[in-house]
Design a protein around this nucleic acid. Structure first.
Lengths: 193, 193
DNA sequence: GTCTATAGGTGGATAGAC
DNA sequence: GTCTATCCACCTATAGAC
């Protein structure tokens, strides 16, 4: 028996805001636009989140926590090879890239980094550090198990992976070449042979 | 005998605007701020560039043309090896990254791509296509001359190089790791052995 | 929890004096 | 070419009724 659940206004505001940032960035979006897309009025948005900064911080916190859970789950499932774990990591990049207009939430915010309120800068910084160290962990595991063969340090290679994936989404959208992220992932995987 | 030349207001506006975009992006900067940094008033800026869109377009056109000249010069100097040509290409990325607060002009604009006026979107798109095809050319030359050894297609590898360099600048600034761009370049160069 | 009304500020852009 | 003054649209945010 599936209980019908209405998505709460609170969550719909978060969804709409995240979508807008991934599409257009931080500075160019406004309460009025969010309100319009949610289907309420501007002061109702502010009732749930007292400031733009607080709203966007909540979006990034939720985003970080989504990935934190997903990445922990991947790391802990010992039946997965290191390559399978990496393939799972690539999926959201491929998915968001295929839409053609969106990039990673934190990639979008990082593009305007110096224009962001400090509390948001901090969250974005943590996102990249989390992903950097998760990638380092998977690459190290694959190297130790002789599954991967590379001469770089795992830390430098993780930097290459993270930077390339983030950059590929940005360049793909701007250049209009919809194969960009796929091509980059192929190039990254060839570093592991 | 060096003739003293005052930098014209016109060019100082372009310089200040470019600097601001590389630091903070497109949407969050304003005529007032540009005027303040140039040392004139807002309507004086608008006297030189009739709209924000026209001003930023002029900045991107100048930026593209700077790189267009530099890259042509590198390609045409036949005394340079393909690796030396690549090393020249890396220099501006290393330089801008070392400042800690700036990224590529077009990388910054691409992060807000969907928020940009169409005429600016077009310029940014051309920047990435120019750089993609220049990299493709150098990589092809190095492969044909047996200087480089890689199994990817030159096109896919060029995508990896461009995406990784752009992404590395963004992630470096946001994560606060000042070695990021260097680490990524090391990883890229190892693809050529 | 949602609304109307509004405050106070800043945005891009214009008119017109010097 | 630079300025003061001004316009109007839009921004974040608040007060207070329902």
């Amino acid at each position: 028996m599936s209980k019908e659940m209405k998505i709460k206004t609170f969550d719909r505001i978060l969804d709409v805001t995240q979508d807008l940032i991934q599409t257009r960035g931080y500075s160019s979006i406004s309460f009025s636009e969010i309100a319009l897309l949610v289907g309420i009025k501007k002061p109702s948005v502010i009732h749930h989140f007292p400031s733009k900064s607080a709203l966007v911080k909540a979006v990034v916190v939720r985003y970080r926590s989504f990935f934190s859970n997903a990445l922990n789950q991947i790391s802990e499932s010992k039946d997965k090879t290191a390559l399978q774990a990496l393939e799972f990591y690539f999926i959201p990049y491929i998915d968001v890239g295929s839409l053609g207009q969106k990039i990673c939430l934190c990639g979008a915010l990082a593009g305007e980094f110096t224009a962001l309120p400090q509390e948001i800068q901090n969250e974005v910084r943590l996102f990249f550090r989390d992903h950097q160290s998760w990638l380092e962990g998977i690459l190290t595991r694959g190297k130790n198990s002789k599954e991967f063969h590379f001469d770089d340090s795992p830390s430098k290679l993780a930097a290459l992976f993270l930077g390339a994936l983030q950059g590929a989404l940005v360049v793909q959208r701007a250049s209009g070449n919809l194969n960009y992220i796929q091509d980059v992932i192929i190039g990254l995987k060839m570093k592991l042979l």
